[in-house]
Amino acid sequence: MLRIAIVDDTEADAAQLEGLLARYFSPASPGSEAAACSVTRFASGDALLTAHAGDLDQTFDLLFLDIEMPGDNGMRLAGRIRTAGSRVALIFTTRVARLASLGYDVEALGYLLKPVQYPQFVLAMRRAQDHVAAAHANKDVRLTIDADGQTRYVSSCDILYVEVNRHRLIYHLADGDLETWGSLKDVSQRLAMAPFVAVNRYALVNLEAVSQFAGSTVTLENGDELQVSLARKTDVAAALAEHYGGE
């Protein structure tokens, strides 16, 4: 079930979009499942954020945002959504492509020119479904870490990288470090299902946390830099391409 919100101040446009969704998810459409979506309509961005400011990711998988709306236009609304930390999939609708073509700034999946044509709509929906499927793919691994006399349960998503120094394992998390004893090989096996890659003999990096890869250095979200060994450089590049390339 794909949970969709349409934010558009024009009733006719919102209704047209809803009609296209109904057609797309009708049993006759190839690649669709019957009644596989729920649609909620909002007349403005404020209405959306007032109702679901804190639980946007939990409530919706995909938002169609009209660009030309009174008050916060679609682009500003998308900026507010991203600033709030939501990763929900966004598709803009607009009469003027120029206004939406900067949508990459807010990581939008694309835009649709009004009046929306069904073929373009289908392509956008395919992309959205792929994106949502990838986002829902459970790549999270729960680790049990005994550190400082306490046992902590850590999600692999929260780990930036793991490094080892003479059997002393250091888990670098967004909110601090955890130290324990063990081998990097064991950790690597436990994180096999999560997107981690060894950048050298002493460090295992979460690909999601890599913000830059240049020369022989990876830079992580928190600004830490790790050296990539010459032997691992190709593997690291391949892992990044694999992770971000999708299927």
Binding site: D130, F213, V218, G246
Partner: peptide, 22 residues
């Protein structure tokens, strides 16, 4: 980087991922 293309339900999808650092 990597190149991936596939056909599904009458739609051809092409993914090109480049890794500038590599």
């Amino acid at each position: 980087g990597r190149l991936h293309g596939a056909v599904a339900d009458g739609v051809y999808t092409l993914h090109v991922v480049l890794v500038p650092g590599a």
